[in-house]
């Protein structure tokens, strides 16, 4: 199976005036295409930092990061943005929908930025809204939806571009258990359809949906359990 992500000795530091904190300490692992990986660990272990780097939102201070056979650790912001918008979808704990846009428009946004033509956009947005069963809510604004519905919109937005990789940062953190399970089922479905998923979570329950759990502490990988 093809490797989509390969990080080697990845480092990230945060410095304030007096203190230098190591967020990632020579972290190395690989993720293959089609895998569903959960990353777990206590608060402050570097999970989110890792996710940001993997999502090309942040750059590492050291080490190598190969995404889809390309070394990206030295990419500038513009190059990262370009690679990101075509290949990566994001799902956040707090949904991060734009309040001023409707469900439809929120989902449409990534397509606008990748320059998809309006007709094609309409088709794809409607397709994914159907799939997520929120078509009937397409004209609503985020505040008018329940948390579960909002996260479904967020997932729809993450997948509308058919990304190779979905990064989910505690996707069920703000949801009750039944809504949480629904979202996890959605992610599983997507994964089964071929999308690679990397998910940061505190929840052992959610982690069980994945193929592999990477546990972190103080910026380092401690264990790795393969579940399947």
């Amino acid at each position: 199976m093809k490797t989509i992500i390969s990080i080697t000795d990845l480092e990230k530091f945060y410095s304030t005036d007096e203190v230098r904190t190591i967020a990632l300490n020579k972290l190395s692992f690989k993720v293959n295409e089609g895998e569903f990986v959960a990353i777990m660990g206590p608060s402050g272990c570097g999970k989110s930092t890792l996710l940001n780097i993997l999502g090309l939102l942040d750059d590492p201070d050291g080490g190598s990061f190969i995404f889809n056979d390309i070394e990206v650790s030295d990419f500038n912001e513009r190059k990262r943005a370009n690679l990101r918008k075509h290949n990566i979808g994001f799902v956040f704990q707090s949904f991060n929908l734009i309040d001023e846009l409707t469900v439809y428009e929120n989902v449409e946004l990534p397509l606008i930025y990748t320059g998809v033509k309006p007709d094609e956009r309409k088709k794809r947005v409607e397709e994914v809204l159907e799939k997520m069963q929120i078509m009937h809510r397409r004209k609503h604004f985020p505040q008018q939806l329940s948390g579960g519905q909002q996260q479904r919109v967020a997932v729809a937005r993450a997948v509308v571009n058919n990304p190779k990789l979905i990064l989910a940062d505690e996707p069920t953190g703000n949801l009750d258990s039944s809504n949480g399970n629904e979202v996890m089922d959605l992610l599983t479905e997507l994964n089964e359809a071929g999308t690679t998923i990397i998910m940061v979570t505190h929840s052992e329950h959610d982690a069980k949906y994945s193929h592999r759990i990477i546990r972190m502490l103080d910026g380092q990988k401690v264990t790795e359990n393969v579940l399947v």
Binding site: E77, H86, D99, Y113
Partner: peptide, 16 residues
């Protein structure tokens, strides 16, 4: 700020 964050995450450039 959040809107800016979301837009950037989903591929907006600064110029846009």
């Amino acid at each position: 700020a959040r809107e800016v964050g979301v837009r950037k995450t989903f591929g907006s450039e600064k110029k846009a």
